[in-house]
Simulated scan of single mutants.
Amino acid sequence: MLRWSAYAVLALAGSAAHAADPASVSFQHNDWELACDNTRTCRAAGYQPDDQDENPVSVLLTRHAGPNQPVYGEVQFGTYGDNAPDVPATVTLKINGRAASTIKRDKNRNFHLTSAQVAALLAVLNKTTTVEFVAGETTWTLSTKGASAVLLKMDEFQGRLNTPGALARKGTQPEDKVLPPLALPVIVAAAVPKALDKAALAALDRKAITAELRKAIKLEDCDELATIGSAENPLDIAPLSNGKLVVSATCWRAAYNTGSAFAVINAQAPYAPVIVTTLANDYADGVIGASQKGRGLGDCWSSEDWTWDGARFVHTHATWTGMCRLIAPGGAWDLPSLVTTVKAVPGQNAADKGK
């Protein structure tokens, strides 16, 4: 079975795969990409040209929803690998060969753009322009290919088209027509026991669970469907609350990723499995997690979480670290499509769980 890239998985997570989630968008064109989450915050990231691995660089532009919102900018210079050039504390921004301004590293070793620098970039990203960051003999080149389409998509998602604050298609529509931010969803996580007691574990009919689980999982989502419940692919079972259990087994293996099927079942037969996902690879304390590489080098990742609320696993987080462009081990940015606030049961703290 062909496994999708992490980017494709994340894009799906923001659309049809989680239709109950508030609207979000993931979009990519040439050397730029966009991720807008369910609060309507948008993040656009651009990179060096696709055919240029030397001196990787990325710019992140972040804008919250609502009228008259500013755009915040950051820069990351490639640190992946032993041959990455050292980045000094001061770098010069050049546009079409002319020095525009100086960017200074802050105490946390991050490069943040001033509002004037963001404005200078936005003024040229819709054009065929040379944008460079220079320090001594080293030059990092930012591609503008795809920026226009990405900024247009950002404006569209946030309802800014044809307003004075639009980034790609300005107009005279009033700013108060811009879509407002959406509230961050709050999920109350239910406490779960640490483990099943021996008697409950012994009472489980694993053959019946296996048979029901295989029927519930789609073959196209699970290469290892026929091996689920076998000695080489045993079931992992953990207690939830309210008479439910979570069961998992490996579903597929790829060159550098694996995925397991996770399902909620009844604690007694009939087990009636409800599939949560076939993309995850971790479970702990009421949270199912998925973490997948975009490619073997590990310079881009996707991750998702599902949190038990006492009745079901709620999709609580989905993010992507940006294109696989050798910016940094583990990826360049946090580009979420789904964000929530997860709270513990009132009066329940971590130390109380499982007691």
Rank of each mutant, 00 (worst) to 15 (best):
Q76C: 08
G78T: 02
G81R: 00
D82T: 01
N83D: 15
N83G: 13
A84Y: 11
P85E: 04
P85A: 07
D86G: 08
P88F: 02
T90C: 01
T90M: 03
V91F: 05
K94C: 07
N96V: 07
G97R: 14
A99M: 04
A100Q: 12
A100G: 09
S101N: 07
T102Y: 00
I103W: 00
K104F: 01
K104D: 01
D106N: 12
R109Y: 14
R109C: 09
R109E: 14
N110A: 10
N110G: 08
F111W: 08
H112E: 02
S115G: 08
S115N: 09
Q117E: 14
Q117K: 00
L122A: 02
A123K: 08
A123C: 03
N126W: 04
T128Y: 02
V131H: 00
V131Y: 00
F133I: 01
F133V: 03
A135C: 12
G136H: 10
T141N: 05
T141V: 09
T141S: 09
G146V: 09
S148A: 15
S148E: 14
A149R: 12
K153N: 03
M154D: 03
M154S: 07
M154H: 04
E156W: 06
P164M: 05
A166R: 15
L167A: 05
R169M: 13
K170P: 04
Q173C: 03
P174R: 12
E175C: 04
D176V: 01
K177P: 00
P181G: 14
L182F: 07
L182M: 13
L184A: 11
I187E: 08
V188Q: 15
A189E: 13
A190Y: 09
V192I: 13
P193S: 14
K194R: 08
K198T: 14
A199S: 13
L204V: 14
L204N: 14
K207R: 12
K207A: 10
A208M: 02
A208E: 02
I209R: 10
